[in-house]
């Protein structure tokens, strides 16, 4: 980028509006009391549209808090945050993002199709349009024959796929995921990772993905954001981008291992920067 930009040059370069733009965001719980916890301190992060960004760090470093601040489920105590160029609240009201958690959080009394249709129902879509959309989403997550099943009839992996289908149903440009595969077994998990990548490639969705698995972060991400606890802050951001043609062979490639090592070292560094230098990066999985 050139050093001097005229206003016309800025307009002409047509920089896309960032999916997420966080500027010195801070979040304290119970501020001003003895129970004050500084969950986030001075977090600055810009995420481009279509980018896949993972947040990694030991338990309690503020990953979920950061995700919830982006989702406007928590208000930051300092700094500014824009989602799709709007305030986080406006982005939430516009259903600009979909969300998935470690618990699939399916509604037990609704069948699979009606679970996927829930956000559309809230948006006021009519029934015909909702049905068409849930059918489409079931194709996308490769469960086309399960529309009328009840959640309890599905395996954990299938439930999680339905949760992803639901998060994407309103076609949001942004997907926020908090350890969505954390409760799955290793085989299902790798399968789901590949599936998520192909869904994102098909839809062009931006993803912010919280995980505590280093290989998962490296396999999925364009960039891995490494965080440290007490107070929660970003200590480094690592470019990964293993390319579009990721498959099971990617997991064997030396580049994959090199990136894993790089993230692991960043996490160690982060931990040394924190106060618990002797205990190691707890809660991080090498698998």
């Amino acid at each position: 980028m050139s050093d001097v930009q005229t206003p016309t040059a800025i307009a002409a370069s047509a920089v896309p509006i960032p999916a997420v733009a966080a500027e010195s965001v801070g979040k304290s719980f119970n501020p001003g009391t003895r129970k004050q916890v500084d969950a986030l301190v001075d977090v600055s992060l810009t995420i481009r549209p279509g980018e896949f960004v993972s947040l990694i760090g030991p338990s309690g470093c503020g990953k979920s808090t950061l995700l919830r601040v982006v989702a406007d489920l928590l208000q930051p105590t300092s700094g500014t945050l824009l989602v799709n160029g709007k305030s986080a609240k406006q982005a939430r009201l516009d259903q600009d993002y979909g969300m998935a958690f470690q618990q699939a959080g399916l509604f037990e009394w609704r069948n699979v199709a009606r679970n996927i249709e829930l956000p559309l129902e809230i948006r006021g879509w009519d029934a015909a349009r909702r049905h068409a959309r849930s059918k489409e989403m079931l194709e996308l997550v490769k469960l086309p024959d399960f529309a009328n099943h009840m959640p309890w009839q599905l395996s954990g992996g299938m439930q999680q796929r339905i949760a992803i289908a639901r998060a994407l149903a309103a076609n949001p440009p942004l997907l926020l995921m908090d350890e969505p595969f954390g409760a799955l077994d290793e085989m299902t998990r790798e399968h789901m990772q590949a599936e998520l990548l192909s869904i994102c490639a098909a839809t062009g969705t931006t993803v912010v993905f919280v995980t505590h698995s280093i290989p998962e972060a490296v396999y999925l991400s364009d960039r891995v954001v490494v965080m440290s606890p007490r107070p929660g802050r970003i200590t480094s951001i690592i470019d990964v981008a293993l390319g579009d043609a990721r498959n099971d062979d990617t997991r064997e490639a030396s580049e994959f291992y090199r990136k894993i090592t790089e993230v692991r070292e960043a996490l160690r560094g982060a931990d040394h920067a924190g106060r618990s230098a002797t205990t190691g990066a707890r809660g991080i999985e090498d698998r």
């Binding site: 516009d94 618990q103 509604f107 829930l118 129902e121 809230i122």
Partner: peptide, 22 residues
């Protein structure tokens, strides 16, 4: 279920919808 309530808030659902649907 807190996950379900949080999901409803992420859909910008009204209090009435949260009551009726969750």
């Amino acid at each position: 279920d807190p996950t379900q309530v949080e999901l409803m808030r992420s859909y910008a659902a009204s209090e009435r919808d949260v009551m009726r649907k969750v």
